[in-house]
Amino acid sequence: MTATMDRPTEEAPSGGKVPLVELKDVCKTYGNITALKDISLRVHAGEVTGILGDNGAGKSTLIKIIAGLHQQTEGELLLDGEPTRFTSPADALDKGIATVYQNLAVVPLMPVWRNFFLGQEIRKKSFPWALDSNAMRATTLTELSKMGIDLPDVDVPIGSLSGGQRQCVAIARAVFFGARVLILDEPTAALGVKQSGVVLKYITAAKEAGFGVVFITHNPHHAHMVGDHFVLLNRGRQKLDCAYDEITLEHLTQQMAGGDELEALSHELGR
């Protein structure tokens, strides 16, 4: 698969199709604290939904609801148009919702292929207690290659890879184990420009392969580069909901930075 950073010129692939995942007026409270209020969004196949927000905006809570870790207090979560309540992250994963968290949940000293199959190892048919290391090595190489990831040696410790490479291995792993929706939690937050570019290319590659991608980020430039649809959260509220052709990078950046509040502050400071 060849990834490209070019913006799509054709109409968005979702059209009028039923979203893979949809939230309708979702709220989440913890006692007297309201973490999310009236959140509505759609995740379509072959599209990237960028969810932006500063620290404390509610992005983590939103991830946990879609990933099955928490359940919403109010509102609906629909999967393929059907109301759904996930009982656990395993339940969400069984239904094709995979989350790649920022810490990646890898064992740095283990080789790449062991991390790729961590918790879901292939065992030899003749000796069920023994791992089929050759099969796992071959599968890891094949699946990474499908994502366009050139990693000739899967025996190296995954901790020796760059941050961008580790993110891409985690994405390929989620795809291999049946994900239809990929939730990526701040995948470029701790990366430099070059490594961020690598991850953004593989996000585009996943989109072009027909996956629905939820891209959580606080970087409007990265979101606008690959996103088809944008939702901006601010203190648990939905501040913005628009498609790529409805907003410029400048406007998205301004809204992310505070919009009217930033303008008011600038005026107050006399600049």
Rank of each mutant, 00 (worst) to 15 (best):
A189L: 10
H229I: 04
A206T: 09
I183W: 07
N115H: 06
A67R: 00
A190R: 03
R114W: 04
A264Y: 07
G163L: 15
P13C: 06
A12D: 06
A92D: 02
D38T: 12
V175G: 00
R114N: 09
D260T: 07
L265C: 03
A264T: 10
D185F: 04
E250D: 14
V169S: 07
H229F: 03
N55E: 08
Q167W: 11
S160C: 11
N115D: 14
A190H: 03
V214T: 12
V198D: 15
A3T: 08
Q71Y: 01
I63H: 08
E263G: 06
D153K: 06
A172L: 05
E11S: 08
F127N: 14
L141F: 00
G210I: 08
D132T: 04
K207G: 07
M110G: 02
D38I: 09
K239S: 05
A257V: 02
D54A: 13
P220H: 14
P157E: 07
T253L: 10
A57N: 08
G96F: 04
V169D: 06
A172K: 00
K207P: 03
V214K: 10
A105S: 15
F117Y: 14
V100L: 05
R237M: 11
F117N: 01
G227K: 10
E186K: 12
F215R: 12
G178P: 05
T248P: 12
E250Y: 03
E263W: 00
G96N: 01
L233I: 10
I158F: 03
G236A: 01
I247M: 13
A12I: 02
H221W: 06
G192K: 03
V21I: 15
F116G: 00
K207I: 09
I203C: 12
V26Y: 07
G192Y: 09
A172N: 02
V100M: 11
L131K: 06
P89G: 06
E263R: 08
N115V: 10
Q254R: 13
D155S: 12
G197C: 01
A105Q: 15
E47M: 15
P111H: 06
I158C: 01
T139L: 02
T188R: 01
T140S: 10
R114F: 04
R85M: 12
V175T: 03
L23V: 04
Q120A: 11
D241A: 05
D38A: 14
A105F: 09
T99Y: 09
T253W: 08
A209M: 15
S14N: 00
L249N: 08
L131G: 01
Y244T: 00
W113K: 06
E246L: 04
K146Q: 09
E263S: 07
Q254K: 13
Y101G: 05
A105E: 15
A209F: 02
K24M: 13
P13K: 10
T49M: 14
H221T: 10
K37S: 15
I183Q: 08
E76M: 12
F211R: 02
L20H: 05
L232Y: 00
N55Y: 14
C27V: 11
S14Q: 11
C242I: 00
P157N: 01
G227W: 13
Q71E: 01
W129Y: 03
T73P: 09
T49Q: 13
E11T: 11
L232S: 00
T61A: 08
G192F: 09
E82L: 03
C27R: 14
K24V: 15
A209S: 11
G159A: 06
H70K: 05
K17N: 12
E208F: 01
G68H: 03
Q167G: 09
I39Y: 07
P108M: 04
G236N: 05
